[in-house]
Amino acid sequence: MKRVFPILGALTGVLLSYALYEALVAAPTEQTMGNVQRIFYYHVPSAWTAFILFFINFFASVVYLIWRANKADIVALVTAEVGVVFCTVVLVTGPIWARPVWGIWWTWDLRLTLTLVLWLIYVSYLVLRRFSSSGQTPLLAAVLAVFGALDVPLVYFSIWFFRTQHPQPVIGGGGSIDPLMLHVLLINWLAFSCFAALVCWSRYRLEVLRREVDETLALEALLEPRHPQTRTSPTGSAG
């Protein structure tokens, strides 16, 4: 495993570099928006990757609720954390793209608002996991994740069923895209998916190690001989 990780890391680095070249140089310039449309090759793959990670989080949470499997709990935590990173990218690159095209940074349009709500749900999930020390935390987090995942299809289909400021989907839903642009989009999605998988893998190993250390420290504290405590009587004398 120790040898496989650097090789996969190097391959992902090459793929990301190639995807960047394709997005900035090889992809054709869009006629209406010009070069700023190339933000699309980072914005859309990041959104798709975040959705996939949140769905994995949903399934892992369901598995945890049914079988109480620790591995499923770790997978849920890891995918939520990396999903929030990708969702943050979506929420940052979206306004940077909107400013020159729409003339505004943000609007309370359905797609944008639901994406912000999705981000807030998973940030609250991570805050719960970080600051709650109760033994019930994984269970509560799993329930929150199951309800939070309901927002993912709402975000995705909001532009199918409602008239919004956000553009219509380029794949499915009646949208169309130049074949070369689609090729560059899919290359970028593949590159970001490989990157997300590697980051998840590292985070998973870190979390497993973290839990092992915590368990060992707890065991050490239990096995440590206790010093006899002196009781104090109400009159102040020990005994």
Binding site: I39, V85, T93
Partner: peptide, 28 residues
């Protein structure tokens, strides 16, 4: 400039997250 800002912001977010992972690993 908007295009570069978006690409730089994306990598800044990813690198910041990787840095937190590295810090947590070092602490452990």
């Amino acid at each position: 400039s908007y295009l570069y800002a978006a690409y730089i912001a994306t990598w800044a977010i990813h690198i910041a997250y990787l840095a937190t992972l590295l810090r947590r690993y070092t602490r452990l």
